[in-house]
């Protein structure tokens, strides 16, 4: 059990959990992820680390309540509560080398996990252009954190209520115009956003790294559920990623594979919303030990 020591709700759907795990806080590197199991009957879901603080001994996760598991977490993961399982850091850490000018692009679920990378690039001496996107002003979070580690921050909102009006990819276009000498672009977010980022840099041959987040069970290279096509080869995102060359990733394949359990996910969410909205998850029942009575003398069976 891993205790939740802080929580912050950014909006109706997005919330932050700070979990006590001193070893992981020390071991974690930008770009790595964890697998969380909220309760004993729960599923294992991968979440990219949004922050880690060795001094405080905590790791930070930012969760969007979109399905049954994440909505249940939104309801139950309060300060003082605990998650059943938390394993990591997993995956190969991001390569953070002084690259001159780096664009760090985060959209949707990818905004928070982009922060450790932006900070690391800044610490390595790069000129960091942060590009983060939200739907509207009231959904914006961590603007101050990004400003603290970005030399430039391009904040995009779909409705123009904060920063520039447009999608994250419009922000990328602005950055590319402003910085003909951009050395590298890293993107975390929905596959369609990462695909658009990779397309935007392809012609100029700018090194482009994306962080994929496919469906996983174990996160240790064992189930193969997270396989992605990169440059025509099959890679397991959990142990060979999650960072890959954005110009090589087959995003259409990634997007199709993310729909694997769409109907089960919808059914689970519907069932949960209707039936057990306010109930805490039931404890797992004691598994009855189904063994024959070794002293049974009666013949038959």
């Amino acid at each position: 059990m891993y205790e939740i020591v802080a929580r912050e709700d950014f909006s109706a759907a997005t919330f932050l959990l700070e979990v006590h795990h001193p070893l992981m806080a020390r071991a974690a590197r930008p770009g790595q992820f964890v697998i969380v199991m909220a309760h004993a009957l729960g599923e294992r879901i991968p979440l990219t680390l949004a922050d880690f603080d060795a001094a405080k001994g905590t790791v930070t996760l930012v969760v969007q309540a979109v399905g049954k598991t994440t909505r249940e977490m939104q309801q139950n993961c309060k300060v003082g509560a605990a998650v059943h399982a938390l394993v990591g850091p997993m995956g190969v850490p991001s390569r953070v080398a002084a690259a001159g000018k780096v664009a760090c692009v985060g959209g949707g679920l990818g905004v928070a996990p982009m922060f450790p990378q932006a900070r690391a690039f800044k610490q390595s001496g790069a000129y960091v252009i942060g590009i983060v996107g939200f739907r509207s002003r009231d959904l914006v979070f961590w603007e101050d954190k990004f400003r603290s580690c970005c030399d430039e921050l391009i904040l995009c909102t779909n409705d123009g209520s904060a920063g520039m009006k447009g999608m994250t990819t419009d922000g990328v276009r602005v950055a590319l115009e402003r910085h003909p000498d951009l050395g590298e672009l890293v993107a975390i977010g929905p596959p369609v956003m990462m695909k658009a980022c990779a397309e935007a840099t392809r012609a100029r041959g700018i090194r482009t790294v994306v962080s994929v987040n496919p469906i996983m069970v174990d996160g240790t290279g064992m189930c193969g559920g997270c396989r992605v096509k990169v440059g025509g080869q099959v890679k397991f995102a959990c142990v060979e990623g999650p960072d890959f060359d954005g110009h090589q990733v087959d995003f259409d394949d990634l997007m199709a594979r993310l729909t694997r359990f769409a109907s089960e996910e919808q059914a689970a969410l519907k069932r949960w919303s209707e039936s057990c909205r306010m109930k805490a998850p039931a404890a797992p029942p004691e598994e009855p030990l189904e063994l024959p009575d070794p002293f049974e003398e009666v013949a038959g069976g």
């Binding site: 729960g42 049954k68 359990f261 089960e264 996910e265 059914a267 689970a268």
Partner: peptide, 10 residues
Amino acid sequence: EFPRYDTPLP
């Protein structure tokens, strides 16, 4: 035991 357990396997 889905949906009692959350992990799906269609």
